[in-house]
């Protein structure tokens, strides 16, 4: 790597990261879609932390909840597919970051919060959600889709040549 540019191997590594995160999103979405009774209500009702009231309120509004359920199920799946394909990668990253921020805020592992939802690890401020969020930020800023992904083709077909920056 010279002058802050990423080497071929670094880009490959980031592409692998992108596909892995996408895979996880896609399966989270599909698993919810294929479970007939899935709803975010339980998760929302368990919310703790500074935004707990907002999430609980959301869970208590049946119309909003139904929409939130649909958006979550389809949104996660869509973000997953886009990340795997490297299509509209930046948009997908932003969408994914949005979802994770919400999940994170609903149950933030801040000092002094304990949860009735059992977790399989031990977290303080940083949990796996936050790590996945950071991964998406890396993918976002390195534009992995334009290295390996349908964005390359899209860019080739419709993109404007960037005059030397």
């Amino acid at each position: 790597m010279e002058d802050g540019k990423l080497s071929r191997w670094q880009m490959i590594a980031i592409t692998v990261l992108r596909v892995a995160v996408g895979w996880h999103f896609l399966y989270e979405g599909i698993a919810k879609l294929s479970s007939p009774s899935w709803t975010a209500a339980g998760y929302l009702k368990q919310a703790r932390g500074p935004f707990a009231d907002l999430f609980k309120w959301l869970a208590s509004q049946p119309n909003l909840l139904a929409n939130a359920d649909l958006i979550t199920m389809w949104g996660l799946s869509l973000v997953g597919v886009l990340l795997i394909l490297g299509l509209f990668t930046r948009l997908a990253c932003l969408g994914g970051i949005g979802f994770i921020v919400l999940f994170y805020l609903a149950n933030p592992p801040f000092v002094g919060y304990f949860y009735s939802i059992p977790t399989e690890g031990s977290y303080l401020i940083v949990n796996k959600n936050l790590v996945e969020l950071c991964a998406l930020v890396v993918i976002l800023v390195t534009g992995s889709g334009r290295f390996a992904g349908l964005d390359v083709i899209l860019h080739g077909l419709f993109g404007r040549r960037t005059p030397s920056r």
């Binding site: 592409t15 992108r18 596909v19 996408g22 895979w23 896609l26 399966y27 597919v81 795997i84 394909l85 490297g86 290295f147 390996a148 992904g149 349908l150 964005d151 390359v152 083709i153 899209l154 860019h155 080739g156 077909l157 419709f158 993109g159 404007r160 040549r161 005059p163 030397s164």
Partner: peptide, 29 residues
């Protein structure tokens, strides 16, 4: 090689391959 300051880019074979390189992951999924 650059051909101009702006305008649609041409796709070469390498681009198409790179573009499709992660599609198999979806198949694997």
């Amino acid at each position: 090689p650059q051909t101009g300051a702006a305008g649609p880019r041409k796709l070469d074979r390498r681009d198409v391959l790179k573009g499709l390189s992660t599609v198999p992951a979806l198949g694997l999924f």
